[in-house]
C-alpha cells in the first residue's frame, strides 16, 4: 500500500538527475540523460569559417565532435582554460556535440516541483536556454535546456563540420 502511494507520488512529481557545471562562478545544470561523457580539456582544433560560438572540433574515438563555446553562447565574458575546464559531450536534437565549461561539479537530484520558472526579460535570445531555476544546498542552480541551445539551422550547420 505504502509502495503504491510512493509510486503515485513519484509519477506525479518525477525526480530528475542533473549534471551540474560552473560557468563564471554560477552553477548550471543539464539533464543527465543528455550527457554522454565528460572529458578533460584537450587541444581543440579551430575550424576556419566556423560560427563564433564554435571553438573548434575534437577527435572523440574517431568521431569528430564540434565544441561549443558555452560562455560565448550564454553571453558571458570569455576566460582562459584552466585545469578544471571540461568538455561535456552531450546529445541534443540527435546531434552529438561538446560544450566547454569551467568545471563539472556533481550530479544532483531534483523533483519537478523543486524547479521554478526563470525570468525571461529582455530581448536576448540566450534567455530561452534557461529551463528553470532551483535551489540546491543554498545555491541557485540554473537549469539549461540543451535542445534550445542552438536553433534548427544552427544544429544543421554544426553537423557539417
Amino acid at each position: 500500500m505504502a509502495v503504491n502511494i510512493r509510486k503515485k507520488e513519484e509519477n506525479a512529481d518525477p525526480e530528475l538527475q542533473w549534471v551540474t557545471f560552473k560557468l563564471a562562478g554560477e552553477k548550471y545544470g543539464i539533464n543527465v540523460m543528455q550527457v554522454q561523457e565528460v572529458l578533460r580539456y584537450n587541444e581543440i582544433a579551430a575550424v576556419p569559417g566556423a560560427p563564433s560560438y564554435v571553438i573548434g572540433i575534437i577527435n572523440l574515438r574517431g568521431t569528430v565532435v564540434s565544441v561549443i563555446d558555452t560562455r560565448s553562447r550564454f553571453g558571458l565574458p570569455s576566460d582562459e582554460v584552466t585545469d578544471s575546464s571540461r568538455i561535456v559531450i552531450i546529445e541534443a536534437e540527435t546531434h552529438v556535440t561538446g560544450i566547454l565549461v569551467d568545471s563539472v561539479a556533481e550530479v544532483v537530484y531534483l523533483r519537478q516541483s523543486e524547479i521554478e520558472t526563470a525570468p525571461s526579460v529582455g530581448n536576448d535570445e540566450s534567455a530561452k536556454f534557461i529551463q528553470g531555476v532551483s535551489h540546491k544546498n543554498n545555491e541557485l542552480l540554473i537549469l539549461v535546456d540543451l535542445e534550445k541551445l542552438l536553433t534548427e539551422d544552427e544544429w544543421v550547420e554544426m553537423s557539417m563540420f
Binding site: E26, F74, V121, G122, D124, E125, S126, K128
Partner: peptide
C-alpha cells in the same frame, strides 16, 4: 545570482 540573457 545573475541570470544570463536578461535585460540590463
Amino acid at each position: 545570482a545573475p541570470v544570463f540573457g536578461q535585460s540590463d
